[in-house]
Simulated assay, not measured.
Amino acid sequence: MQLAKPFKIPESVLVVIHTADLQVLLIERADHPGFWQSVTGSRESLDEPLAETARREVLEETGFAADAPGSELRDWQLANVYEIYPRWRHRYAPGVTHNTEHVFGLQVPAALAPILAPREHLSWVWLPWQEAADRCFSPSNAEAVLQLPRFSRAPMS
């Protein structure tokens, strides 16, 4: 007997992966080709710290270790509450219609080639931040990328 998959927790992270010169990594969803996004993912448990959710999702979706030398993960202290697209509501408990998304930035030392999970993502691209914002399918993702100059720091030494 197969156990039912638990419902997703309607609290997630969005991680804008970028370089010091504001190149942004976008990945294309496998379940919706043409939908480009930053790394996203839900908490696995209610007590999982959001920074740990961000580190886990970055590793799962790109193969990047957020604590690798030359990388810096920052909580931007921004949260978006948005309506979950109807096509994805079946993943959540009945009646759940909104998600709270916490925004993080991960500065990496260079435009590295990610290792994608083929069941999740088809391809990747590094783009200048304004072009990346234009390509994001999610309005909250586009807005986060547009905030990048405000939250990025000078090149790390």
Rank of each mutant, 00 (worst) to 15 (best):
A111S: 14
F151W: 15
A93F: 05
R153E: 12
G63H: 00
V58N: 04
F104K: 05
V39N: 11
A54T: 00
W88C: 11
F151E: 11
W36E: 08
R56G: 03
F151V: 11
A20S: 15
A142L: 09
E48W: 04
G95Y: 09
V96F: 11
D21E: 15
Q77A: 02
A51Q: 09
R29Q: 12
E48D: 06
L50T: 03
L148Y: 12
R55Q: 11
L3F: 01
A68D: 05
D75V: 02
T97A: 15
E57S: 05
P109K: 01
S140N: 06
P86F: 03
E72D: 13
L46D: 13
V81H: 15
A93E: 10
F35C: 06
Q23F: 01
R150M: 14
F35V: 08
A20L: 10
A93G: 07
A68W: 03
E101T: 08
R43A: 10
R74D: 10
S138L: 07
F104G: 03
K8Y: 11
R87C: 04
A93M: 04
P33R: 02
E28T: 02
P69G: 05
P10W: 05
P139W: 12
D21A: 14
I17W: 03
A51S: 14
Q77I: 00
A30M: 09
A4S: 04
Q2D: 12
A113S: 10
V103M: 04
F151N: 06
P155G: 09
L116A: 07
H18A: 14
E44W: 07
R56Y: 05
V103I: 03
L3R: 05
D67E: 09
A4T: 00
R87L: 10
V16I: 12
T19V: 02
E83C: 07
N99T: 06
P86L: 01
A113E: 13
G95F: 12
L14G: 07
T53I: 02
A154P: 15
L78P: 11
R150E: 15
P149Q: 12
G41C: 10
A110F: 12
A133F: 04
V13H: 12
S38D: 12
D67G: 03
S38N: 15
S140Q: 07
